[in-house]
């Protein structure tokens, strides 16, 4: 247990500093070098891979993946890796170019293969003025990890990929994947149980950006966003007014800021409606190791708890 947290902490630190890694004490000498695109996937890969993999994350905790710009250090990391895990569905628009410039010869694993993606609401993205983004939203909503069932598919994909790359450790991976799958199954049940006492009609939440569609689909919760699917797209006055109206009419009580976006817009809505933000949700990244959501499981647990309490009016 301690070793895993230590490993994750190290991994997070590497992600933060963005430098390539020497082999760390937690990994065995013959560890498989792998790269995960961002912190959530990184946690999953670590769960399955254990000490047989040497993991680095490109985008660390509490970081906004939407504005990620790859650097030479990242290209070096990727070049040395055997496997690169990404989410797909348009989340990492910069990935193909990074792989090419790094001369990547390994296997690029897209974890969202095999799930049924949701369409992007308001297909056709809105871009904020200013800095170019390495991130393009296509027709699909990429935040599939918010649905635990999808993540079970992710884990299966991880195990398959690790097995293919490292046949000797296949049993090890399968075993861990199975154990983790059980944890996920339990998590899923937990979440459903948490929502069960709350009427469907009451399950309405205001969030900063449209990152929770999959969660909403899976657990029957309605999320309304101040901005679109891109965290930094421009809000419209009409959109905000509509939200405010809705909050007033439907007596929505749950208002949340997120860990990677500017909270001011949500606070403004709160001021308008007399609501105080009920807390913060983790949408696109885990928290730092000492924080409230350092692993995927804890992230979902935290989010669910915060959501249910806010909606129930506690």
């Amino acid at each position: 247990m301690k070793r895993r947290i230590f490993g994750q902490g190290l991994v997070a630190g590497l992600g933060l500093a963005g430098v390539g890694g020497a082999a760390w004490a937690t990994a065995t000498p013959a560890a498989l070098p792998v790269v995960a695109s961002f912190s959530i996937l990184g946690d999953l890969v670590q769960q399955v891979g254990g000490e047989r993999v040497q993991l680095t994350q490109l985008i660390g905790p509490d970081s906004d993946a939407h504005v990620f710009q790859p650097r030479p250090a990242h290209a070096r990391l990727v070049g040395q890796a055997r496997l690169v895990f990404s989410n797909g569905l348009g989340f990492e628009g910069w990935m193909p170019r990074l792989l090419q410039s790094a001369n990547f010869r390994g296997q690029h694993v897209v974890l969202s293969r095999g799930i049924e993606p949701l369409r992007n609401p308001g297909h056709g993205h809105r871009h904020a003025h200013g800095h170019g983004h390495g991130h393009d939203h296509g027709e699909h909503d990429p935040h599939a990890w918010q649905n635990v069932a999808h993540v079970r598919v992710y884990v299966r994909n991880i195990a398959d990929a690790l097995c293919a790359a490292d046949a000797a450790g296949c049993d090890f991976y399968r075993q861990r994947a199975q154990a983790y799958d059980a944890v996920l199954a339990q998590l899923d049940a937990e979440i459903r149980a948490a929502w069960a006492p709350i009427e469907v009609a009451q399950r309405r939440v205001i969030v900063a950006h449209d990152a929770f569609a999959y969660y909403g689909q899976a657990y029957n919760v309605r999320f309304m966003a101040a901005r679109g699917v891109i965290a930094d797209s421009e809000p419209t006055a009409r959109g905000i007014a509509r939200l405010v109206q809705q909050i007033r009419e439907e007596r929505i009580r749950a208002l949340f800021v997120e860990n990677v976006t500017d909270p001011r817009l949500i606070e403004q809505i709160g001021r308008e409606t007399g609501l105080r933000p009920a807390g913060r949700l983790y949408s696109d990244a885990l928290s730092a190791p000492g924080g409230t959501a350092p692993t995927y499981v804890e992230m979902l647990r935290h989010n669910t708890q915060a959501l249910t309490r806010a909606v129930a009016g506690i």
């Binding site: 933060l16 660390g60 906004d64 990677v260």
Partner: peptide, 8 residues
């Protein structure tokens, strides 16, 4: 090494 786009 911060990945937060400060200007945003």
């Amino acid at each position: 090494g911060s990945q937060v786009d400060l200007l945003h």
